[in-house]
Design a protein around this nucleic acid. Structure first.
Lengths: 193, 193
DNA sequence: ACAATAAGTTTAGAAATACTAAACTTTGCG
DNA sequence: CGCAAAGTTTAGTATTTCTAAACTTATTGT
């Protein structure tokens, strides 16, 4: 039996495909191993291209994911993602910016909502510069914030939320002593950061 | 490493797929072996499911055929029918109707064009009642017809053709003394008979 | 901050097999 | 029929697939 040649692994990317599928399905290596009747050590080796599975074993694994061999080797992303873990987040702001905005569902085409995670350090404020149509919903996961809608101020604490139409000028400021995190959902999707 | 389980071989049919591809490419086992840097004995074993290749080796083999791993594991019969004889025609009109319309390429899903054969007895007319988007092309195989587009009339004889956008009201009439036959192609496919 | 646990990685090696070389069998052709 | 081409089978070596378990890193709760 042949050693996997580096260029084959490169172009087939078996490890990468396996890891991606595992993340999409929110499984640990141990859970996947258990379902495919393998060991977690082997799953780790596969994901890191330290070894290659037999075709039969690969089939067992992709069966756990409910994916065909054809789909597994497909280079187009046909399967709409339903579950998005932390690693799927796309940061929409630079690391040097104090405000951190992360897209929770990247690739928002064909969707009605755009959920993002906003992180504000103490004292920082996020301004909305543009009006747009639609509605916004926010849930404060951490900290205490002040929401300004036109000329009115609202204090919102952890586990409280807000909902307003996007035709008002609005901004959010962290008025607490620790970082604030807001789960924010916009409909229809609009890119404004 | 796991033995190939029988049901895996059954559903993946690796040997069968390999043999079919080899036949399509008119290669002997020895030629294929030579091109993939393997032995003919091994090819024979693979085709008879006596053993299973590693993924890397499978990739080498399908590369010889110019096929991707995705295509290799595809369950759809990729070789689309290209030739449609008379026996493949599907009549879209009843026998008691004077106008005869036959689909030339049945199962038109996933196609950009819908070709039909229209037969008109002398003096008969085929009306288009509905507007729709798209384009239409026609070739007069037999006879002489009159094409009306909105308020304009066109006489088209055997071996002449027409092409227009479908946003016009249109109809066709046989103005000859013998039956007329028109090969008519509509894009995108629309069912209007 | 720290401890405990979850999650992932690495190591050593047993068992299995991927693949070979060559002998054997079948098929096709003149 | 004889011969060569094509395919199959056999025996075995080198390699790898996959394991169990130790180790490391990451995460969570107090």
């Amino acid at each position: 039996m042949r050693l996997p040649v580096l260029n084959v692994e490169d172009c087939l990317k078996i490890g990468e495909r396996l890891k991606r599928l595992r993340m999409i399905n929110s499984l640990t290596q141990e859970e996947l191993a258990s379902r495919a009747d393998l060991t977690k050590g082997f799953i780790s080796q596969l994901e890191n291209d330290a070894t290659s599975p037999s075709i039969a074993t690969l089939k067992d694994i992709v069966d756990v994911f409910g994916v065909s061999m054809q789909e597994f080797f497909s280079d187009t992303d046909d399967d709409e993602n339903v579950v998005f873990g932390k690693d799927a987040r796309v940061q929409a702001t630079d690391d040097d910016e104090k405000i951190k905005v992360e897209l929770l569902v990247p690739g928002a085409q064909n969707r009605e909502m755009d959920p993002v995670l906003v992180t504000l350090e103490p004292g920082e404020e996020m301004d909305e510069q543009q009006f747009h149509e639609g509605e916004e919903f926010g849930f404060v996961l951490l900290g205490k914030i002040q929401l300004r809608l036109d000329d009115r101020l609202h204090t919102i604490k952890k586990d409280e939320c807000f909902y307003f139409t996007s035709d008002k000028k609005h901004s959010v400021k962290n008025i607490g002593k620790t970082a604030a995190k807001i789960l924010w959902v916009v409909t229809p999707p609009t890119f404004y950061y």
